[in-house]
């Protein structure tokens, strides 16, 4: 018995345009949203979302191609690309564009303060382990249910609960520093 992911992946391995189009249409939006919540910058999130799907094309030619749970694979690649971006930008978190700030409703000073708080929070989250980061972001930024998080991460719900509790405890300490 094959899952929908397996069926579409089977066709995608021959670089079938229709199958690849389906994959992009289904997952590009959520991946972009996830990257934006991790990075906090729309331009970088957009670039990296495109990179995630190019990585998929490269992987389809090798044994590293996802066999199933394509969505989880895409989220993992997206998260790794975001961490690579942060590593390249050692000077600190990505600075948001001024045009974005002025385009938003509300006072610019409030928006700047709000963004600073979020960037500090993201910086603390990045100090967690990769799995802890992902479970925190999936559960409380993406607001995915526990079962969905377990499926995406390829873990049991019990393991995700434990991971979540440890991540929150550690993050609380980091936020108190």
């Amino acid at each position: 018995m094959t899952t929908p992911d397996q069926q579409v992946l089977e066709r995608a391995r021959t670089y079938d345009a229709q199958a690849l189009g389906e994959i992009y249409d289904r997952y590009a939006g959520p991946i972009y949203g996830y990257l934006y919540r991790v990075i906090g910058d729309a331009t970088h999130a957009e670039d990296l979302a495109g990179e995630v799907f190019l990585r998929l094309l490269q992987a389809l030619r090798t044994s590293r191609a996802p066999r199933d749970n394509l969505e989880g694979w895409l989220y993992r690649v997206a998260h790794n690309l975001a961490m690579d971006l942060f590593r390249r930008q050692k000077k600190g978190p990505v600075v948001p564009l001024v045009e974005e700030l002025v385009a938003q409703d509300g006072q610019p000073s409030d928006l700047v303060e709000d963004r600073q708080v979020k960037q500090q929070l993201r910086a603390r989250i990045r100090r967690l382990s990769s799995d802890q980061q992902r479970v925190i972001l999936f559960r409380f930024a993406e607001e995915l249910p526990l079962a969905e998080v377990a499926r995406l991460m390829g873990k049991s719900e019990g393991a995700v609960k434990i991971l979540q509790h440890r991540a929150l405890s550690r993050l609380r300490k980091l936020l108190q520093e």
């Binding site: 690849l20 972009y32 979302a49 799907f53 190019l54 979020k118 972001l137 993050l171």
Partner: peptide, 23 residues
């Protein structure tokens, strides 16, 4: 952490250019 769950702004160039490049 839930303050990060805001709805992200739409991509500056939309998702269509990315789709074209991908295909």
């Amino acid at each position: 952490v839930m303050i990060l769950s805001e709805t992200p702004p739409p991509p500056p160039h939309g998702l269509a250019p990315g789709r074209q490049r991908f295909l």
